[in-house]
Design a protein around this nucleic acid. Sequence first.
DNA 1: TTGAAAGCGATACCAG
DNA 2: CTGGTATCGCTTTCAA
Lengths: 337, 337
Amino acid sequence: MNKKITIIDVAKKSDYSLMTVSRAINNSPLVKEKTKNKILRVAKKLGYIQDAIGVSLVKGKTRLIGLVVIDSANPFYAKLIHGIENIAVEKGYHVILFNTNEELNREVEAIKLLIGLRAEGILIVPCQKSHKHLLQLKRNGLPFITISRRIREFETNYILNDNAYGSYIATKHLIELGHKEIAFIGGNKHVSTRKDRLKGYKKALKEQNINIKNKLIIDSNISYSSGAKSFCKILDSGNRITGIVAYNDVVAIGIMFAANERGLSVPEEISIVGYDNIEITKFIFPRLTTISQPLQKLGEIYCNSIINLIDDKKEIVKEIIKPKLVVRDTTANPYDF
Amino acid sequence: MNKKITIIDVAKKSDYSLMTVSRAINNSPLVKEKTKNKILRVAKKLGYIQDAIGVSLVKGKTRLIGLVVIDSANPFYAKLIHGIENIAVEKGYHVILFNTNEELNREVEAIKLLIGLRAEGILIVPCQKSHKHLLQLKRNGLPFITISRRIREFETNYILNDNAYGSYIATKHLIELGHKEIAFIGGNKHVSTRKDRLKGYKKALKEQNINIKNKLIIDSNISYSSGAKSFCKILDSGNRITGIVAYNDVVAIGIMFAANERGLSVPEEISIVGYDNIEITKFIFPRLTTISQPLQKLGEIYCNSIINLIDDKKEIVKEIIKPKLVVRDTTANPYDF
DNA sequence: TTGAAAGCGATACCAG
DNA sequence: CTGGTATCGCTTTCAA
């Protein structure tokens, strides 16, 4: 490895003090234009690259943003991450990525590491099994925003779509098509997003005087295969359903697969509504009816918001985005309509 | 923001020198057990968290790994990233993520930033439009491994699957089913992965004395919609094909969608083979026949390898993994067989 | 087994 | 406009 070129090397080579070099590199107006150019030329020739660690130490700023998600490979989060990274780079920040697999100890560990790294802000999908560590963050004044979930126990910054509303219109859509036996499948019980979506589902049923049957409400992990499994569970328990509000698109696709395996055709025999409008939903057959969130844009909003919080700690972020129904090919009138 | 707790605060509070505290925190055997415990207790009570910036500055080590990909939302890379992050955390490294969108200047910028951040190693999907910046990395002795692509212009570390072979068995599979008019769709022309896959495709055709028609070879970006578009292009140019070797699964799924839109049924009227075996391929209808790479594991191999390189710069990584054919439901005998 | 001093690379602050 | 000095938080090195 070549010896590291520091500001001192540039100073020596250019016959200026290291302070003048520092100013030149930071484009300070306090340096004569000519001097600046001379120094910059030397710096370039030597291949000088500013050391971010040195800068961070003295400035106390790292331009690091922590991104803590449960599963970066999940298409929903993957798209969000893409949007977040995009804005981060644009604004001169860097993204450090952590996966928690929905495990509390990994989440706690990630946050500890991020504090140690002096991340300036954190975007996090909390597992919601405990929130002590987040309360701690709050006390420390390290800005964070929860992604697509909401902590109820104390005030935090969050940005999410109106999950109750989204699920409500999804359910209502099925009811209007004539469905009465509608299941709600997927999601982790203790996660706010699921609670909210379940609320919307129940509200829609109640409004139409349709009984809420707990047997038709199933929780699951978020994966294609979990969706498939949960659907089979309902089927095998002998419950007769014609419509499904899936927790999200990934679960919905799993359900579609299982339905197909079991010889049930979608939407003729069973209608399915997803949630999120991930890209693949437009390209599968049949195309999935779903509730749409603007994922890439949402990611950008997240990143812009955390940067705003970093720049001005006083502002509080509480943003709720209205999702909308996208009707495609997985919903139709029930068979015996 | 509470004042930052440093090693000095712990030293004062515990009545030891900051050196002893440092040793205690790093679990040095040079500290008496009792002293260590006392100090650790104080540290915990004060909420001390080791500052990674300070450590990095003096040690010259950051435990940062740069991860530079063209599109982290692409399911192939998303899965790889997940595997990489998993190992990184396990080994005490942190992952900084950059997307390049296949743009050279973003790639160059990302590398510059990573050098500035003193990343210890880089995993990169190079856009391959130029490689000067990578040559520079090599000269600097900053270890890097190219992901799923190979630089031909100079020696680098790489890990990839045997693309030519994978594409060869994909094509051969179609030929054995009786196909003769086989297209190759997707991928960027200047990317090594595509060159290799195209080579395999051509080799299989030649072996069976099937003419290679350049009209049936189409390049494209890597996205569902690009796959769809490219397929339509072939169709609209009046070329009659019965089989398709897709550059990868994402492109293949796009093609399936377009085929469906055009009223062509898969596999009855057209057979399709993908590449990568991303998770969704098992859950769509019809399930995609594809060439399988162990994605999560591959990610873990990448991360382990870069860490090995970081620990011992002398080792060179050149690993080629044999992919295998997974026959599912998108390939069958051609219609007029 | 413990401690003091130097230094990692850069900037803030104060002088000139 | 330019330069000197202290300092960020920690470890290395040397000394006790």
